[in-house]
Every structure is written in C-alpha cells, then in structure tokens.
Design a protein around this nucleic acid. Structure first.
Lengths: 139, 139
DNA sequence: CTATGTGCAAACCGTTTGCACACAT
DNA sequence: ATGTGTGCAAACGGTTTGCACATAG
C-alpha cells in the first residue's frame, strides 16, 4: 500500500459520492498524483472489492467506495438531469416504480436505464466464447 | 429521405438487434455509406423517434428500431457476459427479480445495471442549472 | 537489491466536426 | 439554383499503455 494509493483512497472516502477519475485526481491535487495512477488504482481497488465502478451512461467512469448492505446488494442512484445531483437510494428499489420515487424525492420526469447481464445456456455448456451467432463486442 | 438513410434504416431493420454504428456501417457496406453518416443518421432517427439509443455500459452506442409496446414502454435486454448474445425481454420487467429471469431464460450469474434519471426539486424551482452543490458532468 | 508503482507522453478508440463536393427538389 | 446530405480527414475526450525513473519491502 503506497502513499499514492492511500491518498487516492482517502479522497474517495472524503468525496463520498460517485466520482470520475478526473475529479479524484483533482481532489488529491494534480501534483500529488497522476491521472494514469488514478485509473490504475481504480482498477486495482475494484478487483479488491474496495470500490464500485458506476456507469451513468455519459461516457465517464465513476467510482465510489464499496458499502454494500449486509445482503450484498449494491445501492442504486437517482440523478438530476439538470444539475447532476446524485441521491443515493437506500435499500433495494427493484420493484418500486418511478412514480413512487417521484413522490418520495420530489423528482419529476423520471426515467431509468435497466439492463441485465448474465451467462446464457450455450456459454454455460461450451466452456466459453460459444455462440456462432455471438456478436463481437470489440471489433 | 435520401438513399443513404434508406439503406441505413433497412440495415437496422434487417439486423433486428441493438447494433453499433460500426456494425451498421458494415451491414450497409463501407463503400455504400460513411461511418460519420451513420452517426448523423442515428442522431436524426433518434430525434424522429424511429430508433432507440441503448447503452450497455461498454462505451459503445447501440441502436435498434423503435418498437415500443402500446403503453409506450421500451423493452429491456438480457445480455450474455460471454458471447454478448442479446435476448429481448417482452413486457416490462420492472419488479421481476433476477432469479425469475434466470429461471425463464436459463442464464446464470445475472447482474443488472439500474439507474434513475429525473429533475430534482431545486432545478424545478430554479429555471435550470440550480444547485450550488451541482456536480459538473463535463469538465 | 529487486520487484513493483509512478509520472509522463504517446497511443487508442469511439465519436464529433469542418470543409468541400454531391445530390435532392 | 440552392439548401441539405455526404465523404473524408482531422479534432476531441476519456482511457490505456510503454518506458524510464522512483519507491516499497
């Protein structure tokens, strides 16, 4: 555990909300730590389970310190489309509908992004990279 | 409606699954249509409501022809983490849990990405760009 | 001392944009 | 003819990587 990693982790705790690598680098002071180092540390921390990578679909990676509830559930977020404020949702909101969120948080025009990821039957039976009909993700 | 747009739209119908601009360009033949044109057409089609932009969090934009159900609900997707196969989910799965998906489609290790987007109370009352505590998305 | 981490700068990759030419009407 | 669409190539922005130097153990 080097000093850079300490500093970066501290900053992440201090920020207490999903932050981009650039924001993290600025929080520690650009002279204290290089952007590339932030990226490398984030990858490391993620593998260690210390942080979660969050994707809000704007092309920027965001990270926050992992604080899963006892059930292992990651919390979700409610974002303001205008000011980018982030409300952390307590508990699991799967099954709640947007109107309930609107009532509770006073947001309007709520939309969501929801996708599921898993391993399909063919891949389970074929080691890996089955699927003649597979769509290549890269290239 | 130009020939390029016809060809691109045809390709999108033919592909019948969320496709990246590169895939679309290849489907119409690189000599038939430039990548930049695909991007521009996608932006146009999206504004016209002809296609939906889909984000699977891998940094690639994907598009599919819009076929919302009568309730105006967009369908969601179930992705295989290994072969990238895409299963289109019928109806609204909000409220279904992953274990139910696993049973129905035979996928395992199902995870999801779920975020909500709306306009917060402060922004509703402040024209736009309220929030002193706003997090700047770009820059 | 030796392996690993870091800073710097260049490379990458998807996406966007400026510009001159081509096409639709 | 005139305005819009297109191809090409360069620009852009976030992320990754190669390499030489610095640091941890």
């Amino acid at each position: 555990m080097t000093r850079s990693r300490q500093v970066i982790l501290d900053a992440l705790v201090r920020l207490r909300c999903p932050s981009t690598p650039k924001e993290i680098a600025e929080a520690v002071g650009t002279r204290a730590c290089d952007l590339a180092t932030v990226y490398r540390c984030m990858t490391l921390f993620e593998e260690m389970g210390l942080v979660h990578r969050i994707d809000f679909g704007d092309g920027l990676a965001r990270f926050e310190i992992a604080d899963d509830d006892p059930t292992g559930h990651q919390h979700h977020h409610l974002l303001c489309r205008q000011c980018n404020r982030i409300v952390k949702l307590d508990g699991c909101v799967l099954g709640e509908v947007e109107s309930a969120l609107a009532r509770r948080y006073g947001f309007v025009e709520i939309k969501h992004r929801l996708e599921f990821f898993g391993v399909c039957p063919d891949c389970q039976h074929a080691g890996r990279g089955a699927a003649s009909q597979a769509r290549k993700r890269a290239s």
